[in-house]
Design a protein around this nucleic acid. Sequence first.
DNA 1: ACGCGTGCCTGTTGGC
DNA 2: TGCCAACAGGCACGCG
Length: 299
Amino acid sequence: MPELPEVETIVRTLAPQITGAEVAGVYILLPKTLAAGAEYLPQLAGAVITRVFRRAKLVMVELAPGGGAAPLFMAFHLKMTGRFFVHPAGTAPLKHTRLIFDLAGACPGRDDAGCPRVRGGASVFPDGAARLFFDDMRTFGYCRIMRQADFALWPFWEALGPEPLETAPALLARRFQGHNKSIKGVLLDQTVVAGVGNIYADESLFQAGIHPAAKASSLTLPRLTALAEALQAILRLSIEECGSSIRDYRDANGDAGSFQNNFAVYGRKGQPCRRCGDTLIGGTVAGRGTVHCPGCQKD
DNA sequence: ACGCGTGCCTGTTGGC
DNA sequence: TGCCAACAGGCACGCG
């Protein structure tokens, strides 16, 4: 279930492998995975990947089509089980492969100083011919191909809140205020702050000592500021650890993250709190599985 | 306008 | 041991 730190890690490990490569072919194994932009497929052939970056939980790939046409963007949402692989040219699809991009001039396996866990070294395929796989077991993930002008017509993109790591805690705290719903629901609301999912919502609420079901409107600004600071600290630490791997998540090198070893509450229902020893309680808040500590998160 | 419940999916897990 | 319901969860959508 890739959230901000996992998507950031995927981008960091994918970017050095495919930036500068030219798209030589596209295969759509599951049509619904290409959620928008099929009309741009002809332009994609021959386009050069110029940039790979992250916005919220989206993996963004920018391309320069031939003939000086306007840049294209591919926006991938991995949802729960979306994954990227860079395979040798000609590799056959796997059971859950949904899209394949043939690439020329790729650098699979190239080193990336941004993540300590990458394999490193020179291109695994000396001729640079590779296949980018987008796999997704549960088929919730998607790819949209767009031009710059299309972003304004994409409600989800337009409504996205600010990046939590690029926003001052005081500003985030003010955005958390005034919602008549649970603070956990507020953290998960992508229009309030972008990129937070179930793991980092639960973990930051524990860190800040706030009950996940507490109404946001009932929390003071200092406590919401503490929550924003906890959220930032946890996201930064998780990025350092290359994200959390529960079962499906792997980065674009196929490697797992290690932040799951730092979980205080997520996935620890019924186990003792590492801070106070109370038994962690599992329940449902904002429609999601939620774990909290009754001793450390009283309100 | 906002908050909430449901559907989309398939592999894994746990209870009987 | 085998079966099957419950579960995982981001987001679009419909409802009140």
